[in-house]
């Protein structure tokens, strides 16, 4: 084990993951393009799955990864496709297509 540095490895790793999760959570609300918002919500799920591994909860980590990133990502992406919000290029920015940003 690395000598007991003030901030041990696990807390550092937890800090990085929590920061990643919080940033991508904010991104979900801010990003205009709905596809990237769904992708960001997938990142949140995966980040939380990693946090569950750190908390010694392997069952929950597996469920969160499979169900959170996999299944809900597929369901949300299918929903986007059917809602017609699936536009990859940012050129098409009519408010309805963009999905309307929350007015902060």
């Amino acid at each position: 084990m690395i000598p007991d540095v003030d901030l041990d490895l696990q807390t550092l790793f937890a800090l990085v993951m929590v920061a990643l999760v919080l940033v991508s959570a904010v991104l979900v609300l801010i990003l205009d393009n709905m596809i990237s918002a769904v992708a960001a919500s997938g990142v949140v799920s995966l980040g939380v799955a990693v946090l569950f591994v750190l908390l010694h909860a392997p069952d929950v980590a597996m469920t969160e990864a499979v169900v959170g990133a996999g299944l809900s990502g597929v369901v949300l992406a299918l929903g986007l496709r059917r809602l017609g919000l699936w536009q990859l290029d940012a050129t098409d920015t009519s408010p309805e297509r963009r999905g309307g940003k929350p007015d902060a």
Binding site: D59, V66, V67, L71
Partner: peptide, 22 residues
Amino acid sequence: YIILHGHLTPGGGFQGGVILAA
């Protein structure tokens, strides 16, 4: 595998079921 080894290793009905659905 995950369904049947649910009581031995991490995993179980739900996770295995979702993988089957996928």
